[in-house]
Amino acid sequence: MKLTSFAVIFVIIISPFIFTSAQEAEAAIQDQKLRYYYDNIIDNAAVDAAFILSNEGSGLTYTGNVKITDARQLAAQAFFDSVYYSFNAKGNPSLTARVDACIPVLVFLESEGFTLYALDEYKNINGQNEIKHIWFPMQHYIGEVLSDRFIIRYTLEDKVYVFDISEHTLREGDYSEFKEEIPYFKDKQTFENLRLAAVKNSVEEKIMAYMDYYNQWTLGRSLSVKLEFPSIDDADWKRALTDEGIIVFAQGFPVLSGKSYKHYALGGARIIRKAPLTGYTYQGVLYYCKTDCEFLQNTVASDPGFNQDSMIYFSNAYEAAAEGYFPCPHCRP
């Protein structure tokens, strides 16, 4: 045989392997796209829900003689609307049920405690069993027992509730008020660590308990999704747990290859209010600047010719400019 024949035989032998590996690579790429698509939808919806939470539903519901609706309810509704429409599933009960089953738990973190909005079975008004997302009662962030006598209920802020086991008293207040009795509360960092741990553990415990419960009752039903607690980065936990907001767990969307789909999304709903802007008249010119502007504090305020009464406050630059004030050339607000 000539060299060309060897080459031909070699190619014939090698080509099935090349073909299969190319197919696998193709499937992996498509799988990646699909996962990205799901991630995108869930993240987007979580951000939408957080947006509603942070606005407390204002502008999205009418007030008046109608009872003020819970922002949480609106946020959950917005989340699922967004997801349903993203999958083009709105109005198709079997598809929405499929999506519901893949997003079994939403966790709403609030200052005083957290609430699960999760799939559960209940009897509806006609006596039929229905599987739907329902609100679970609010849970508090309970920490470990400190000094063998204090049970602490934390909040997302510095406020704590302290229950004294030996005296059977419940007190509430800023953590620094208890620093005489509880040595851990002496410095901010230790308190912060304790608080984060307490929040994380209570949330994790509750979600895991729910997942166990969910896995039990899905057994024997046609819901094939087995819930598992995803591994969440410590940094992500920290980010999620210092803010009011929403955590979403999505699992079991159909994928092409590899591990089953697992994703969590965090939406922070805390609004960080910027400091107001200060407006003042200096040497006959109207200026607005940041409240901590060095020029204002050092030069202007100490000038004897400066009229303190001319100082007013604006909530943003537009408002200041609309009143005819110029931006301060030093701090550039």
């Binding site: 698509y37 995108n40 987007n44 939408d48 509603i52 967004s82 429409y85 993203s86 083009n88």
Partner: peptide
């Protein structure tokens, strides 16, 4: 490609 979400 399908993307979208809430108007903010």
């Amino acid at each position: 490609v399908r993307t979208g979400g809430m108007v903010r």
